[in-house]
């Protein structure tokens, strides 16, 4: 992400320190992660100390301080999904993507993350791929969903 885009986002929020989280959210949305250089720029422009920014970015799970893959896969491990075989789904996801939970592959294709509940337990087991919910998934269907999204980006 270039500094110009960061400056634009900051200007949109009138460079106010109170808009820090909104600025960070927008950068996170566009760039999928928050590189150190960007944070330094935000710190200078909004006049917020780096310690405060680190405090906030490590507090909220929305923010990522490491690069994320093009496709974000969330596997629900909540109680309802767990009893319906979320463990097997996670194994399948890890096998197909080659990425362990909480990690991203070196080619930045996939980021896999486990979550504790997505609030739609009736659909369990649930996976979310790039914001799209897939309910009642079987390992075979999981493979298909992941294959499809892998193709569509090429």
């Amino acid at each position: 992400m270039d500094i110009g885009t960061v400056d634009q986002i900051i200007d949109k929020h009138h460079g106010e320190a109170s808009s820090l989280i909104q600025v960070l959210l927008e950068i996170q949305r566009q760039n999928k992660w928050l590189p150190k250089t960007v944070l330094t720029r935000v710190s200078e422009k909004l006049d917020v100390p780096m310690s405060q920014i680190q405090h906030i970015t490590t507090f909220y799970k929305t923010f990522s301080l490491v690069p994320k893959g093009r496709h974000e896969v969330h596997v629900c491990m909540g109680t309802a999904c767990h009893v319906r075989g979320a463990e097997r789904i996670l194994d399948t996801v890890e096998e197909v993507t080659g990425v362990k939970s909480g990690e991203t592959d070196p080619d930045l294709n996939f980021s896999v993350e486990t979550v504790n509940c997505l609030g739609c337990c009736a659909l369990g087991p649930v996976i979310v791929v790039d914001g799209e919910y897939h309910g009642n998934v079987e390992p075979a269907e999981t493979v298909e969903v992941l294959k499809n999204c892998d193709c569509s980006c090429e």
Binding site: S51, Q52, H55, T58, F59
Partner: peptide
């Protein structure tokens, strides 16, 4: 932060 205004040390994670 308050006395030295240097912000060299901070809280991380939660």
């Amino acid at each position: 932060a308050e006395v030295k205004k240097k912000h060299a040390v901070g809280f991380f994670d939660r």
